[in-house]
Design a binder for these strands. Structure first.
Length: 283
DNA sequence: AGCCAGGCCCAAC
DNA sequence: GTTGGGCATGGC
């Protein structure tokens, strides 16, 4: 068991703001997830989180995963100075943090995300893992059944397009097929791309099948913490159009607006996305 | 029934 | 370089 003192941290918000797809909520601020080939349960009680599972030796991993060494109070303060009009969204999502997740998992997950709903993305990720990942020890098997790691590029490269179509990937089957093989054949190239500066990395990611500007931005924000990234999906278009009175598809106007977020674009995007989606749910 | 979802690809300008 | 149609799938 591990425990951490946390501030500006709300487990429900973090797991519900569309960056993680392998966690399920057991109860209020108690989540069970598959991360780094292990099953863990995380409980938040006030300013403490408790991590249970086969993770005792990896305190540094969780510090990095939850971005615990970054001062989100300062970030929210700075972003508010840059863009006071975001006060509602920053307040509403005040416990959000940017996770640092596995690059290949984010690559495939966000290829699946295109033109899809979040619950269905989770479903497809689960099916890919069950079919091409490995079964991993799970002391909560009675509650949630068997657990499977996210497939490696090598394992996923063995899938056929027909198999992937049968799992329900739709037209994204060919993208996953192509991209998994490319990464499996040269994993170092993908790793090198992810290590590069935002604009270069993004340009290179666009070369992978099924990866366009929005998907590339998500991969870089959620697997590299590229804070310059501002993934622009249908929700963001909607909220930005409403907030700033611009047309939904005017990329130039949007780019001009998000410049004011400076080096905090990625954080702003998360607060905006979460605010827009959660308030839509309540309608 | 038709629209939408964390869009991308490709052809045609 | 930009724009538009087509695209699997499932929920509402």
């Amino acid at each position: 068991m591990l425990n951490f003192f946390v501030t500006d941290f709300d487990l429900d918000m973090i797991m519900d703001c569309g960056q993680a797809f392998r966690w399920q909520k057991l109860s209020e601020k108690v989540w069970l997830g598959i991360v780094a080939n292990k099953v863990v349960r995380i409980t938040q009680r006030g300013n403490e989180i408790i991590i249970e599972g086969d993770q005792e030796a990896s305190k540094d991993f969780w510090k990095d995963y939850f971005d615990l060494e970054r001062d989100y109070g300062q970030i929210k303060h700075d972003l508010l100075l840059l863009a006071p009009e975001l006060a509602d969204a920053i307040q509403f999502g005040s416990g959000i943090r940017l996770l640092n997740q596995d690059p290949f998992e984010m690559l495939i997950t966000f290829i699946l995300s295109a033109n899809n709903h979040i619950p269905r993305i989770k479903e497809l990720v689960r099916k890919l893992s069950e079919n091409y990942g490995n079964e991993i020890p799970n002391k909560w098997e009675l509650e949630i059944g068997k657990a499977y790691s996210f497939p490696t590029a090598k394992a996923l490269a063995k899938a056929t397009v027909t198999e992937l179509r049968a799992l329900g990937l739709g037209y994204r089957d060919q993208y996953v097929f192509d991209t998994a093989r490319v990464v499996a054949n040269d994993p170092d190239a993908f790793q090198a791309t992810m290590a590069k500066d935002y604009s270069v990395a993004k340009k290179e990611l666009l070369g992978y099948s099924g990866v366009g500007p929005k998907v590339a931005d998500c991969i870089l924000l959620f697997a590299s913490r590229a804070h310059e990234s501002f993934p622009t999906d249908t929700w963001i278009k909607k909220t930005m159009s409403r907030r700033y009175g611009i047309k939904e598809n005017d990329g130039k106007q949007l780019a001009a607006i998000i410049e004011k977020y400076g080096h905090l674009k990625g954080f702003a995007q998360q607060y905006l996305f979460y605010f827009e989606r959660e308030n839509e749910k309540r309608d």
